[in-house]
Amino acid sequence: MTWEHSNKTAIVGVGATPYYLRGQSWPRTVNEMIGEAILNACADAGLSVKEIDGFAYYASAMAGYTDKMDTASIMEMLGIPEVTFTATLTSGGGGSAGSIGLASAAILAGEANYVVTVMSLQQRAQRLGTVFGAVKPDPEVSFLQPAGLVGPGHLMSVLARRHMHLYGTRREAFAEVAISSRNNALNRPKAIRRKPLTLEEYFESPMLADPLCRLDFCLETDGAVAVITTSTERARDLKQKPVLVRAAAHGGRREWGRAFGWMGMSDEYFASSGHKSVADRLYAKAGITAADVDVALIYDHFTPMVVMQLEDYGFCAKGEGGPFVESGAIRMGGSIPVNPHGGQLSEAYIIGMTHIVEGVEQLRGTAINQVPDAQFALVTGGPASIPVSGLILEKSA
């Protein structure tokens, strides 16, 4: 049964800063980039920034792992007179897609009219790639640090190796994810990586955490992205054609738990993205299946997790993600185009927000690499510690 609130909210504005290589946004501040992204989203929607009355964050309102996004500071900076809703999903990038569900919940409950979701990232003080090695030891990370598992990539390598062991997945599948993403970024002016990538170059890339080489890792970038959600009724009076929120879901099973930060899962979850239960709820709420999705914006912090999410979201059977990807299915013109914007592997890594922007542009029909006649877009967040999340957007009539 379709969710009773399907298509009652819509995304009406998206905005971003330029994307910078890690640390090169300095001397700009995190707040300055937040302000630019929100103002650009307001301009895109045809709204005054003073009409913003809600904030829906994720990652516990952290900008990366060292900076904080503070509603009061943003209000002061932009001259927003009053907010009636401000909240966040917990944990990290797993909540990026679900944050639009949080914004929608506020709107449907009558708590706010125009809700902004924003993420800003500046890796000048601390690289996200080594964050677990930088924190003080505690009962959880003390299991990881002595094993040299100092960053998300090292931890993901363990899950990737397990998938290879169980299902015969090859590194060629991970290479195809990287190459397909790079192909999609070649014609994007803002993309960080726009040089063609060959299979030979992939296998020559330095090994960082076996079986993951440098090209299996997402970019380390700075920048900010903002998205504005409102009711579908209000959206029809604004500048852009609304992109409807068909369904959103977040959460996850206890067996997935802290994900790659604890390694206590059974094989069903160990060699997965942790999204299966969320995917099932998302499709049930949307009243569609994977076969109805026209374009997938899959969170691609590491190439193997794209393979595993394709399984969890039903584009192929469990354990068949490797051959599915190697077949060319995720390329433009394939059975399910994935990340036409180049994703976090080649365009920019702003903790999932660029995927929401691309989903909106695909359904507006304004994407640089447009999927013909796209009606439904899937956006995912994570895989990371609970919550992981998914979002289905629909083109409006």
Rank of each mutant, 00 (worst) to 15 (best):
Ala10Tyr: 04
Ala10Cys: 11
Ile11Met: 02
Tyr20Leu: 07
Tyr20Lys: 01
Gly23Lys: 00
Arg28Leu: 14
Thr29Asp: 01
Glu32Met: 05
Ile38Gln: 11
Ile38Trp: 13
Cys42Gly: 05
Ala43Asn: 13
Ser48Arg: 15
Glu51Trp: 09
Gly54Leu: 03
Tyr58Ala: 09
Tyr58Ser: 01
Ser60Val: 06
Gly64Trp: 04
Asp70Met: 04
Ala72Ser: 12
Ser73Cys: 01
Glu76Ile: 02
Gly79Ser: 03
Gly79Asn: 07
Glu82Phe: 06
Thr86Pro: 03
Gly93Trp: 00
Leu102Asn: 06
Ala105Tyr: 08
Ile107Phe: 11
Ile107Asn: 11
Ala109Tyr: 03
Ala112Gln: 04
Asn113Ile: 00
Val115Met: 15
Gln122Arg: 15
Arg124Phe: 10
Leu128Gln: 12
Leu128Gly: 14
Val135His: 09
Lys136Asp: 10
Asp138Phe: 01
Gly148Val: 00
Pro152Gly: 06
His154Thr: 00
Met156Leu: 07
Ser157Val: 07
His165Glu: 14
Arg171Gln: 13
Ala173Phe: 13
Phe174Leu: 13
Ala175Tyr: 05
Glu176Gly: 10
Ser181His: 13
Asn183Arg: 10
Arg188Ala: 00
Ala191Ile: 09
Glu201Pro: 08
Glu204Gln: 15
Met207Asp: 06
Ala209Trp: 02
Cys213Ile: 10
Arg214Ser: 12
Arg214Cys: 01
Phe217Ser: 02
Leu219Ile: 13
Thr221Glu: 14
Gly223Thr: 03
Thr229Met: 01
Thr232Ala: 15
Gln240Phe: 04
Lys241Asn: 13
Ala249His: 00
Arg253Glu: 09
Gly257Arg: 06
Ala259Asp: 14
Gly261Tyr: 01
Trp262Thr: 04
Met263Ile: 15
Phe270Met: 12
Ser272Val: 07
His275Met: 11
Lys276Arg: 14
Ser277Val: 09
Ala284Gly: 09
Ala286Gln: 02
Gly287Leu: 14
Val295Tyr: 15
Leu297Cys: 14
His301Asn: 11
Thr303Asp: 09
Thr303Gln: 07
Met305Trp: 01
Gly314His: 00
Lys318Asp: 04
Glu320Ser: 02
Val325Lys: 00
Ser327Leu: 08
Gly328Arg: 14
Ile330Gly: 10
Gly333Gln: 09
Gly334Arg: 08
Ser335Thr: 15
Asn339Cys: 06
Gln344His: 14
Ala348His: 08
Ile350Leu: 02
Ile350His: 00
Glu358Cys: 08
Gly359Asn: 06
Gly359Arg: 07
Arg364Phe: 04
Arg364Leu: 03
Thr366Lys: 01
Pro372Met: 10
Asp373Thr: 15
Thr380His: 11
Ala384Asp: 14
Val388Thr: 05
Glu394Asn: 09
Ala397Arg: 08
Ala397Leu: 03
